[in-house]
């Protein structure tokens, strides 16, 4: 019997990719949603302790990081326009800036966490058990989990964007086929949007 030739499924459906990405974003929102529920419950139960603990956080670094992420969201959005105008050089530059900004965000986060650690503030530390109330311990537990999970998403986003840059270089992503770039942008906006909620919840409400 003659084997029929296997036809690769190379149908390109940008609409399907975008729906897929949006559905994935719903999943991510619910992942963080669980944490936001926990945060609300414990904030409601320990209003004073959460107030006190929030004052330990450095609002300035938080604000700088917020600006960094907002700008990076802008640059990745611009790259989607640039690729449609077939300006590949500019596209790559804008994506590179996005990745660099993401890296700067992580560096800031590193120093922020490092400062906390040096003050003996980390999960399971003796200092916290002695000097902190239960509400404050919960606040910092959630702070490390939520910003840590967010930082993990930043790293995943960076890898995703670098991967897209590689695809653009090989012209697998081009001005007629840029759903992957758009999806990386959507994902990056999600990472940004989550930070927009984390920043006031941990740094500003105090």
């Amino acid at each position: 019997m003659e084997q029929t030739k296997h036809v690769e499924h190379d149908h390109y459906d940008p609409e399907a990719s975008k729906i897929g990405m949006w559905l994935f974003i719903f999943t991510e929102l619910l992942l963080f949603g669980g944490l936001f529920i926990i945060y609300s419950v414990y904030r409601y139960l320990n209003p004073d302790a959460f107030h006190l603990a929030a004052e330990e956080l450095d609002t300035f670094i938080g604000a700088v990081n917020t600006v960094i992420l907002l700008v990076s969201s802008m640059t990745i959005a611009m790259s989607t326009t640039a690729i449609q105008k077939q300006n590949y050089r500019l596209t790559q530059w804008l994506l590179a800036i996005t990745v660099i900004l993401a890296f700067v965000f992580l560096v800031n986060k590193y120093f922020e966490w490092g400062a906390k650690f040096s003050h003996g503030i980390y999960p399971g530390s003796e200092h916290m058990l002695e000097a902190f109330s239960q509400g404050e311990i919960l606040f910092f537990g959630l702070y490390f989990v939520m910003t840590g999970l967010h930082a993990l998403h930043i790293v995943i986003g960076m890898v995703f964007i670098i991967w897209v840059m590689f695809y653009i270089k090989k012209r697998k992503v081009h001005h007629n086929r840029f759903a992957l770039l758009e999806n990386s942008g959507l994902y990056w906006h999600l990472v940004d949007a989550i930070w927009i909620f984390l920043f006031p919840l941990f740094y500003l409400i105090s």
Partner: peptide, 11 residues
């Protein structure tokens, strides 16, 4: 790590 969210000892 003992973050405390479900541990009654830590609140």
């Amino acid at each position: 790590f003992g973050i405390g969210v479900f541990d009654p000892v830590l609140g």
